[in-house]
Write a protein that binds this DNA or RNA. Structure first.
Length: 480
RNA sequence: GGCCCGGUCGCCUAGUGGACUAGGGCGCUUCCCUUUCAAGGAAGAGGUCAGGGGUUCGAAUCCCCUCCGGGCUACCA
């Protein structure tokens, strides 16, 4: 039988980078076994819904190259894939649980619950539901439930132990008496997470449950529900969290956390996937540059770490650089599109890109490095034209020689330009760097940038000469 | 507080009783290359494997205790 996995985000905001890692692992597991992947929207908390969240989940996942087979917009044999559209299913199952004696109606008001909690806290007791409604006779409770506001609660047995063999953590065990009579169906008729996951995972034929570690604590409640329905319990894997650099929950304080932000910040999806896969998993070999296909082939759930990892932006940046360098020039130009002004000439862009490819950490870095080709507004302090231990007059002389050599150079290409500037250095008896420094500043307005000779070539003879002469003027004035 | 999960260089990690004088990558330092910056190459610093007890001829690897960190403890997911 082929595997069926699901990822089940809540539409409560932007897609978090930590959830992406979980989704990635689900994806890899399903894909490497030729299984099916299901996207299910868990929107059972009506108060936390954020408009547009589903759109951003779709956008983020598509951008990352994560694919799935069944979902709200794709449809599938178990539609609908949005929990708020499946309410009758959960209500029916809640009633069944009551009928089986595995759950009960509870009529306690929120006020009573709050007061109960307050008293328990005052007495330093465990704060949990006191089972006040647990022993109302079923007939009476059923009758009241028709007219009164109520919830359905799980009837947790008094004793016993529950356990799973987690795919990443191994054996985990709980004493049943540490578990609360959890609400399963809320008074608004919506299920809580606990009821909804169990019902949907079963009904949708999910064969492996893989989710974040924050869910382990609720596993025993789920186990009780499975047991009450006599359903098979799928194997589970709980992936460790991705924490902030300080060991706390990864949040906005630590920088970007939403997939959309990384896209906006000019990261490559390949890099993000590669980096993320390696937080919590390692292949055991010394390779670490992996595409989605590589990962699908190599990733093994047995190798997933059980300890949490920390977010390391420096390392992400490194992977981003690696993936930028792997792109073809044409592809790089395409990826640069959103990060470069629309009116910049694409032919020029294409000519300079090979020379900045290995100088970028993110796609955003390109713009500043090559702006000099697309504007004639170059500014700098003329004093900076003069190399260390040289003087303004000498610098003017050197620049003059440069203009002489470049004026009739044919063809005006990098190799010839290089020879010309070398000749100048020789004539001046200067280090090459001393000749190149003022030229670079003159034509780019910056002290660092793409290789000089190629920069001059792409800039073209006329604009190059103009700028160098401009520099000579500026120096002359500053000097007189 | 209770219940769970975890703890190998600053960070990601390899390691599953002997090849470990604990390996790789990021970051850092130095050097080489060199027209700047990168990229690339080379070298280096950095770890009492959280601490303490065991078990064993032998432990990062198995057991116990302690400490530290994280998650959960809602009519949130």
């Amino acid at each position: 039988m082929s595997v069926r996995l699901r990822f089940a985000p809540s539409p409560t905001g932007e897609l978090h980078i930590g959830s992406v890692r979980t989704i990635l692992y689900n994806h890899l597991f399903a894909r490497q076994r030729g299984g099916r992947l299901i996207l299910r929207i868990e929107d059972t908390d009506q108060e936390r819904l954020v408009p547009g969240a589903v759109d951003s989940i779709y956008a983020g996942l598509h951008w990352l190259g994560i694919t799935w087979d069944e979902g709200p917009r794709e449809g599938g044999p178990h539609a609908p894939y949005v929990q708020s559209e499946r309410l009758p299913l959960y209500q029916k199952h809640a009633q069944e649980l009551v009928a089986k004696g595995a759950a009960y109606y509870c009529f306690c008001s929120k006020e009573r619950l709050a007061e109960l909690r307050r008293q328990q806290e005052a007495r330093h007791e465990l704060t949990r539901y006191d089972r006040h409604c647990r022993n109302i006779p079923v007939a009476e409770a059923t009758a009241r439930a028709k007219a009164e506001s109520h919830v359905v609660r799980l009837k947790v047995p008094d004793e016993g132990t529950l356990s799973i063999e987690d795919l990443v953590h191994g054996h985990i065990e709980w004493q049943v008496n540490t578990i609360e009579d959890q609400v399963l169906l809320k008074s608004d008729g919506f299920p809580t997470y606990h009821l909804a996951v169990v019902v949907d995972d079963h009904v949708m034929g999910i064969t492996h449950i893989m989710r974040g570690e924050e869910w382990v604590a609720s596993v025993p409640k789920h186990l009780l529900i499975y047991r009450a329905f006599s359903w098979d319990i799928p194997p589970m894997a709980h992936f460790p969290s991705v924490l902030g650099p300080d060991g706390k929950k990864l949040s906005k304080r630590h920088g970007a956390t939403a997939v959309a932000e990384f896209r906006k910040d000019a990261y490559l999806p390949e890099a993000l996937i590669n980096y993320l896969a390696l937080v919590g998993w390692a292949p055991g070999s010394e390779e670490e540059i992996f595409s989605m296909d590589d990962l699908t082939r190599l990733w093994k759930i047995e190798q997933v770490q059980s300890s949490p990892g920390k977010w390391d932006k420096e390392r992400l940046d490194f992977f981003n650089g690696v993936w930028i360098r792997r792109l073809s020039v044409d592809e790089l130009v395409r990826r640069l599109e959103p990060f470069v002004p629309a009116d910049w000439d694409r032919e020029t862009l294409k000519r300079i890109v090979p020379h900045i490819q290995e100088r970028m950490k993110t796609l955003k870095d390109a713009k500043d490095q090559i702006a000099f080709l697309f504007t004639d507004d170059i500014t700098y302090d003329p004093k900076d034209l003069v190399p260390a231990k040289r003087d303004p007059a000498g610098t003017v002389e050197a620049l003059a020689k440069v203009t002489v050599h470049l004026r009739y150079l044919e063809p005006f290409i990098a190799t010839r330009i290089e020879a010309a500037l070398k000749a100048v250095a020789e004539e001046m008896d200067w280090k090459q760097g001393d000749v190149n420094k003022p030229v670079r500043l003159a034509i780019t307005g910056r002290t660092i940038g793409p290789p000089l000779y190629e920069s001059l070539e792409v800039l073209g003879r006329d604009r190059s000469l103009q700028r160098i002469e401009g520099a000579m003027d500026a120096l002359g004035k500053a000097n007189s």
